[in-house]
Design a binder for these strands. Structure first.
Length: 288
DNA sequence: CGAGTGCCCTGACAGC
DNA sequence: TGCTGTCAGGGCACTC
């Protein structure tokens, strides 16, 4: 999604930012500050889209956004950042959705002049915060390394797992060991790495950490290549369904044979999330 | 502080 | 037909 948004939004000025069919609140904090600002880049951390904003040169600063003193005592402009999380059902598009529209951004002249944020179940966020100030977003503030970056190391993953007594799957979903792993991809990665999802994180054998790191990368890379996983709602910016569903080995396949060993895939609940695994390939382990 | 639970919200679907 | 109940899961507030 970031890759689709980048060429569309980079350099565009937000002329108007409107909340539609949604009450102002923490999920839309600071949205009123977006108008008049330029989107200078489209970045991402885990599942959060991060778009740095800037006031056009020479533009008047609105009240409450005056320059603040920097660390060196010099005057320094405090930039804002647009933070978007799709939650479960969030969709960004350039065509008006049939319903559940929450945010409309009008952009300056050019193709595709309107960005629509649709979010049926209202779990998504669309907010403007001072750049890097993630006090309203504790998960983002404590986010682990990007899974496809060199910073995602076996040693680092091992340290993060060793700090938690929770189930390894719950630990992965916290976003602290690594960014961007959601419920579907946690199940898939643990199946590839042959780790039972309820294994206490600090009891994952050292020899299985490298396979887990590699499996997380494999699953996320493959899903990105397939434009994501569409169960019901997810759509790319162009409105296409993601194709990774077809490649899922365990998620949504309870009762079907494991494609590695033929054993029936189990479905259990871990940390209030539906969890799918092969009881033969992924043996339960306890803390030693 | 960390682990565990429940909440938010709506649509799809099963069961009666 | 229409009602009720359950499930789905992002993050986060709350309790212990």
């Amino acid at each position: 999604m970031r890759r689709e948004l980048e060429p569309w939004l980079t350099g565009r000025t937000i002329v108007r930012a409107e909340l539609v069919d949604a009450a102002p609140g923490p999920k839309y904090a600071g949205l009123e500050r977006a108008a008049g600002q330029v989107i200078t880049a489209v970045g991402r951390r885990g599942k959060f889209l991060l778009m740095p904003l800037a006031r056009p040169h020479g533009a008047a600063q609105p009240r409450g956004a005056s320059p603040v003193a920097g660390a060196a005592g010099e005057k320094e402009t405090r930039h804002d950042e647009l933070v978007v999380h799709l939650g479960m059902t969030g969709v960004i598009s350039h065509c008006q959705p049939p319903g559940h529209l929450r945010v409309r951004l009008e952009l300056d002249g050019g193709p595709r002049p309107t960005l629509y944020f649709r979010d049926t179940r209202r779990f998504g966020r669309f907010m403007v915060v001072p750049s890097g100030d993630y006090r309203l977003l504790p998960t983002l503030a404590a986010m682990g390394p990007e899974p496809l970056s060199p910073e995602f190391t076996v040693a680092g993953l091992q340290r993060a797992l060793a700090r938690s007594e929770a189930a390894v799957k719950t630990c992965l979903l916290s976003q602290r060991p690594v960014a961007g792993v959601g419920n579907i991809y946690a199940d898939e990665a643990l199946w590839h790495a042959r780790i039972h999802p309820e294994t206490p994180a600090d009891a994952v054998p050292g020899a299985r950490v490298a396979p887990l790191r590699d499996a997380i990368r494999l699953v996320l890379e493959a899903s990105i290549a397939a434009q994501g996983t569409t169960l019901n709602d997810y759509r790319t910016v162009a409105g296409e369904a993601g194709e990774f569903l077809e490649q899922l080995a365990v998620y949504g396949h309870a009762g079907e044979p494991c494609r590695r060993c033929g054993t029936e895939i189990s479905r259990i609940v871990v940390g209030a999330r539906s969890t799918h695994f092969c009881p033969r390939c992924q043996r339960r382990r306890s803390r030693r």
